[in-house]
């Protein structure tokens, strides 16, 4: 990056705004299966709240929040949640992502579908957040990064 100077007012504004954006992102993810929004939009909101701190505070403060090496495992965990749900449903005798076949005891099939979509959305949100933060980190780091 070019020359950076410290502005406490910008940092204070970002610190004030960032938790509310993050809570709204989780709200969008959790309510994604019956209202507008969903995993992608909520994940992008979570990424926006992380990137706000990164832009305002610089690399030293960003290291306290989500470290650079943690983004790839988070994205992998998100993708694994997605595929694990689908494959478990497949292993229990249904189709891929057939939520009605999920082995959660004590639930009707309609509640199973409800819960299955919720699990999928959490996985998608994690993956989208981690990958958007990873793109930002790699762009800031410079050109020689494969």
């Amino acid at each position: 990056m070019r020359r950076q100077f410290h502005s406490p007012i910008v940092l204070l504004g970002a610190r004030l705004l960032s938790p509310y954006i993050m809570v709204f992102g989780w709200y969008v993810i959790i309510h994604g299966h019956y209202s507008p929004g969903g995993g992608f939009q909520g994940g992008a909101l979570l990424a926006a709240s992380v990137l706000l701190i990164r832009v305002a505070g610089g690399r030293r403060i960003a290291r306290l929040q989500i470290q650079e090496f943690a983004t790839t495992p988070l994205a992998v965990i998100g993708v694994l949640i997605y595929f694990a749900t689908g494959l478990v449903a497949m292993a229990m005798g249904g189709y891929f992502l057939d939520y009605g076949a999920l082995p959660i005891p004590g639930m009707d099939p309609d509640w199973l579908r409800y819960t299955g979509i919720l699990i999928i959305e959490v996985g998608i949100g994690l993956a989208v957040m981690a990958i958007l933060v990873m793109i930002y980190d790699n762009m800031v780091k410079g050109e020689d990064y494969a």
Partner: peptide, 20 residues
Amino acid sequence: DVGFTEAVIGAGVTGILFVV
């Protein structure tokens, strides 16, 4: 839904990436 995505991606994340 389209408007939500546009506001989050177009007005939030893409602006930050372009500034970088």
